[in-house]
């Protein structure tokens, strides 16, 4: 039973990704829709990461003793300054670990 469920789940995740790549879908993406969709990456990815930082145990935590918030602020500044994923990960990671240890 679980096996069938897993196969059906695979159909769902694959079709959610593949559907609009299929040429047979009667959908033409014009200039307006295309411009709207050009904002999808910052929109979706921001909507994924922001709650991880600001919501702790189901409620909003905007206080200086939230290590996620401090370290994410470091990450934002470093990423804009250096544009490097590696330097951003390393610097904010160190800050995060130190805060977890000492706070």
């Amino acid at each position: 039973m679980t096996l069938i469920t897993i196969l059906l789940l695979a159909v769902i995740t694959f079709s959610s990704r593949y559907l609009f790549l299929h040429p047979g879908i009667p959908l033409r993406i014009g200039a307006k829709l295309s411009s709207f969709l050009s904002f999808s990456a910052p929109a979706v990815l921001t909507a994924i990461w922001v709650p991880i930082i600001f919501i702790k145990d189901g409620s909003l935590n905007i206080s200086p003793d939230n290590p996620y918030l401090i370290a994410a602020t470091v990450a934002v500044v470093v990423s804009i300054k250096t544009k490097s994923v590696y330097i951003t990960l390393a610097s904010s990671g160190v800050v995060f670990v130190l805060l977890r240890v000492f706070l």
Binding site: V44, T46, A47, W49, I53, A72, I80, S84, S92
Partner: peptide, 30 residues
Amino acid sequence: IAVTFIALIMPNITNLPALVTIIIAGVFSV
């Protein structure tokens, strides 16, 4: 995972429309 997304997105926020996008996404997602 949050930091990798920050690192990939933030350097590309170089104009007003992009800034508006991430502010709205951040506020409403929370």
